[in-house]
Nucleic acid binder design. Structure first.
Length: 432
DNA sequence: TCTGGGGTCCTAGGACCC
DNA sequence: TCTGGGGTCCTAGGACCC
């Protein structure tokens, strides 16, 4: 059996933990640059605010109903996530941290000795008590069915008729629950597949489980579709992955706080992305062999039409050195930047990741390892200074704006809450 | 004026290898 | 008339996830 623990309205719930006055009020959390709505409390959902909706389009509605809007505070959400996951790891035999607000639990072996429905209810209560975060728990014979169970548990809880936990065990119950779930709410069915399914009259998860394997293979992405059907029928095709297997790629991308046209400004943004990518690599003990840099104009502007260009560069040796990454990124940017365009976003994507230092493939034509020990030392010193004195204390020169220019690419975050749990200066204050 | 960021997996086709 | 079999690696694009 598999469990799925999913935090309810996660980002909004995190904001509420430290601002209890938000309890019972509609709350939305915004994406970077206060661009779109990315999380909504139950009350905000009830007002009709949609996931992904542009903030500027609903500002009036938000004002009218006294909705509290929060800029995203990823430091806080990341820390709350760690607390929830840590607890789950104490009580379940194996935990796959699937996303910031979700975890799959491998409950094999517990079936015989535990009443899983009751156990799940206890987990739910404990997570709430220990972290302040409300969760729902679904338990079922496959991961896909555990997702279904979780979703139905959440629906019933919102409707006020469920305990926030659902155990799917026997066949009849499985059928009955699947009949209540629309196909677009099934894990693995996106809008494309949903449209295809609607076109042939398939509306519910129960009907989806009954479509032919051949049809699914042809129309739902080959083996992906076939696995989906099997899982819905109760045959597991995927297991809980505890070990964080080596990451395949890593991206640092951001929309600018404003439209940019000048190369130095964009170069500054790209250098900062390269620097962040370097930090992430070193934190995870990885090095990258391929670097892609891209720039984009607005997807939403009618004229001129949207435009994006990328350049992929193969580095002579895999590296985690910020200065090397920044230099290559700059080279790539110069290849793709064109004057006269109104850019809104740039990014650096790293592929070909390998463990740093181990079995390192050298270069035939040059010896970039010559300075390696000193450079590694430099990166360590930079990371240490930035940890101790704050992000951006030591930066790559090209990230620093020319005098009077300011950091043209800087993000807008007008309504951010404090880093309640991760910065001494912003810790929660308690009055006695 | 204003529309997020970071991932995974799969398929198909081309180039190339023995 | 008729042209093998079994691979790898790379790239691009699609679909999906949270």
């Amino acid at each position: 059996m598999f469990g799925l623990v999913d935090c309810n309205n996660f980002y909004a719930s995190c904001e509420r933990v430290f601002r209890p006055e938000l309890e019972g009020r509609p709350v939305v959390v915004l994406s970077n640059n206060d661009g779109c709505i990315v999380a909504r409390s139950q009350e905000a959902k009830a007002l009709g605010l949609k996931m992904g909706e542009p903030y500027f389009q609903v500002k009036e509605l938000i004002r009218q109903h006294g909705v509290v809007a929060c800029s995203s505070n990823y430091e806080l959400y990341g820390d709350m996530s760690r607390r929830v996951m840590w607890y789950l790891q104490q009580v379940a035999p194996a935990v796959e941290v699937y996303s910031v607000d979700e975890a799959f639990l491998d409950l094999a072996g517990m079936t015989r000795h535990f009443d899983l429905g009751r156990w799940a209810g206890e987990v739910r209560g404990q997570v709430r008590q220990r972290t302040g975060i409300p969760v729902c728990v679904g338990v079922a014979p496959t991961k896909t069915l555990a997702k279904v169970a979780n979703r139905v548990a959440k629906q019933d809880m919102v409707a006020g008729c469920g305990p926030g936990v659902l155990l799917l065990e026997d066949e009849a119950q499985r059928r009955e629950v699947l009949a209540r779930v629309a196909i677009e709410d099934v894990w693995g069915v996106g809008h494309r597949s949903a449209a295809k399914l609607h076109a042939v009259g398939v509306r519910t998860a129960a009907e989806l489980a009954g479509v032919g394997d051949a049809w699914a293979r042809k129309n739902l992405g080959g083996v992906v579709g076939a696995r989906l059907l099997h899982e819905l029928r109760g045959f597991p095709c995927s297991s809980v992955v505890v070990e964080d297997e080596a990451r395949k790629s890593m991206a640092c991308t951001r929309s600018f706080g404003q439209t940019l046209t000048e190369l130095p400004d964009i170069a500054g943004a790209v250098a900062s992305h390269a620097a962040r990518a370097g930090e992430k690599l070193r934190q995870q003990g990885l090095a990258a062999r391929l670097l892609t840099v891209f720039v984009e104009t607005s997807r939403f502007a009618q004229l001129p039409p949207p435009y994006s260009l990328s350049a992929q560069l193969t580095l002579p040796v895999a590296t985690d050195d910020t200065l090397v990454l920044a230099a290559w990124a700059r080279r790539g940017l110069e290849r793709i930047w064109r004057p006269g365009r109104r850019y809104v976003k740039a990014g650096v994507v790293l592929d070909g990741l390998e463990r740093a230092g181990a079995n390192r493939q050298g270069s035939l034509f040059e010896d970039p390892c010559r300075f390696a020990p000193a450079r590694a030392e430099l990166m360590r010193a930079m990371d240490a200074l930035n940890t101790r004195y704050g992000k951006g204390m030591v930066r790559v020169g090209s990230m620093v704006a020319a005098p009077g220019r300011g950091e043209a690419w800087a993000m807008r975050r007008d309504v951010k809450s404090p880093a309640f749990t991760t910065k001494w200066k912003e810790l929660w204050g308690v009055r006695c």
